[in-house]
Each structure stands twice: as structure tokens, then as C-alpha cells.
Design a protein around this nucleic acid. Sequence first.
DNA 1: TAAAGTGTAACGGAAACAATTACAGTTTTA
DNA 2: TAAAACTGTAATTGTTTCCGTTACACTTTA
Lengths: 138, 138
Amino acid sequence: MVNQQFTFAVHILTALAFADETMDSQELAESVNTNPVVIRRLLLGLRHAHLVETYTGKHGGTKLSRKPAQISLLEVYDAVQPRPVIAINERKASKHCRVSCNMREIMSGVAAGAEGAVREHLRGITLQKLLRKVRRAA
Amino acid sequence: MVNQQFTFAVHILTALAFADETMDSQELAESVNTNPVVIRRLLLGLRHAHLVETYTGKHGGTKLSRKPAQISLLEVYDAVQPRPVIAINERKASKHCRVSCNMREIMSGVAAGAEGAVREHLRGITLQKLLRKVRRAA
DNA sequence: TAAAGTGTAACGGAAACAATTACAGTTTTA
DNA sequence: TAAAACTGTAATTGTTTCCGTTACACTTTA
């Protein structure tokens, strides 16, 4: 993965879980060390996945829409829609080459399996677990 | 993953397995549909991992250095050294924020688990399996 | 010694991302 | 009711990462 959207999203949600109250995009941006607009763009996806609720206007901000124990990292992963774990070669195959003609389908299977393995791993991790790690730490 | 080095590498090796004789970088480039120099750059890593042997000079080229059944996609993965499956936020933490101060370590654990899941998946796939799929196809 | 390969450095362009600016819209509250 | 303090979102810029390409020295064969 090249982009940090998933990491940022997990960070945001963990911060919200730890705070247990609404935070505005400026506060979240400071915790992640980025720009508030970057945060708001991410919140768009998280809101759409019903992981957070945000309020506009003065004293606006964002809070979790569920308990941390009810949010798995798989949901976060799906919410940010990251690029595939394994990229496949989308360009045209060389027609007279049997390997070339079949590689796309073959690699699709490999990539799907890898994607599934990652998803199963993330399914088992809840925000609650991460929150406990923060609390246990120094 | 944003780059296609792993896919290209698997394609190259499958083509070599299917041909069962040396191929030059021009032939491989046509099968993958890219430039011969791109192929030669990838072969550098594969050679270093002892997956292929290449010969310089006239009638030079590359062949597998082992039977397809002895080569797993995990070895290919390690040979090309792709970017991590999950990128972590490397920037400085905000000191007064407990979440910020702990996220790097927490996400490292998540990322390592995801990486491990992908690796285990790839470990179970040999070049021989892919070769059989090519042969079975049309 | 010419031909046909590989090895590798160097450069250019495209695509993906993050950061930033800007501003309209929405609440609160003084 | 107007100012203050937020969010939503479009548009732009700069950086980084890749891939493609050219170029050329080196190696082997015929």
C-alpha cells in the first residue's frame, strides 16, 4: 500500500475512542500531524460507512457512532477503499502467448486470495483492542 | 500495492516455466507487454534470490534455476521486496497526545499481522500450480 | 570481428498523494 | 441578528514513486 489513508483513519478513530467525546478536525489533524482538510476528507468515507457522526456549525466536530468494541478494522479498511494489496497487470496480452493470455485471470485469483487473507486478519481486530493498548501504554 | 513488480515477476517466471528453455528479455518483455530493460531490472532481483540464471552474450537469456514445484510465490515476493501491505504513519507524534504517541507501535503490529497473512497465503502457491492453470486453459 | 545478447546508469513523463488555499454553508451564542 | 467557529468540498501545487526509454560498456558466440 502506498497511501496512508487506512493508517490515518485508524488513528482518527482511536483518538475519538480515547477521547470519548467530539473532536474537531483541527484537533484530529494535530494528533495525526497533518492538515484538517485531509482529516475531513477521510471523515467523509468513515461517515458514509456509519462509523462516525459529524456535526457542522460552531462547536461542531465528530464522534464515534458506535462503541469501540463494535468497530473492526475491516470496516475501516472497507470504508477507506484502499488500493488492492497486489496490483495486477491490466495491459493487453500478447495474443499468441498462452502465458500472457492467461496471466490476468491467474493473478486475479492470487490477488483475491491475498486480499482475503488481509481482510480476515483485520476482521479480528476491534477498535477496543487498540484502545486498550493505548491505555496500557505508559 | 501501487507497483506491478510482483505481478511482472510472477509473469516472467511463469513464462519461463511454460517455455522450459531460456528466453531473452525481448521475448519476456513482449509477453508482459513492457520494455526489455524493465524485465532485466526485475531479473536482477530474481537472480539474486537464486530463482533464475541468466547468461550474457549472443544467445544469452534467462532460465529457471529450479523446478516450478520448488518455487513458491513467497520467494518471488521476497525477491522483489514490494512496499508494505499497510503503510504506517512515520511522521512525528504530537507529544502531549497519548494516542499519537502510541499509534506507530500499534499500527506496526497491525501491519505486521497483515503482512504475515499475505505471506502465508503466497507460501502455499507454487509456480507449478500456476503453470498447471495455464496448461489447463484453452 | 561482427552480431546478439545482458548490465546498468541516467533522464523524462505520468500518475498518485498529500498539503494547502479558498470559500460557501451551517450552527451557536452574545 | 450578526459574528464566531465549525464542516464540506473544489481547485491547485509540489513531491514522490514508477515505468519507459535511450545509451553504452561488457560478454559470448559464430
